[in-house]
């Protein structure tokens, strides 16, 4: 095997290794960014829900539902990250 072919194979392997790493970074970003986004929105909605509940306890159910709605963002992020790494 000539030296050029070996060099080319090494280069291809490096690119393949790099793409796997980039995929992992992409997947991590998808989960972490959506995780932060949903945490931030849940904090705001949760605060508001607690404020409303303090004055009217009957709003507990509505408050709970509204607080967990942003959780869908992180689920989308998780699905996207699974698609990236699969």
């Amino acid at each position: 095997m000539s030296t050029e072919v070996v060099a080319a194979e090494t280069a291809v392997n490096t690119v393949v290794d790099n793409s796997a790493g980039l995929k992992a970074i992409g997947a991590a970003l998808a989960v972490s960014a959506t995780g932060f986004a949903s945490a931030w929105t849940e904090k705001e909605i949760g605060c508001a829900a607690i404020g409303a509940m303090t004055e009217n306890e009957n709003l507990f159910g509505k408050g709970l539902i509204l607080t967990v709605i942003p959780e869908t963002i992180v689920i989308f992020g998780l699905v996207v990250s699974l698609l990236i790494i699969s």
């Binding site: 705001e44 909605i45 605060c47 508001a48 829900a49 607690i50 404020g51 409303a52 303090t54 004055e55 009217n56 709003l59």
Partner: peptide
Amino acid sequence: SNYAYTTTRVRAMKVH
């Protein structure tokens, strides 16, 4: 500042 908490609580108070 806790705008989300305070404004929502105040809106709930306004209902009364």
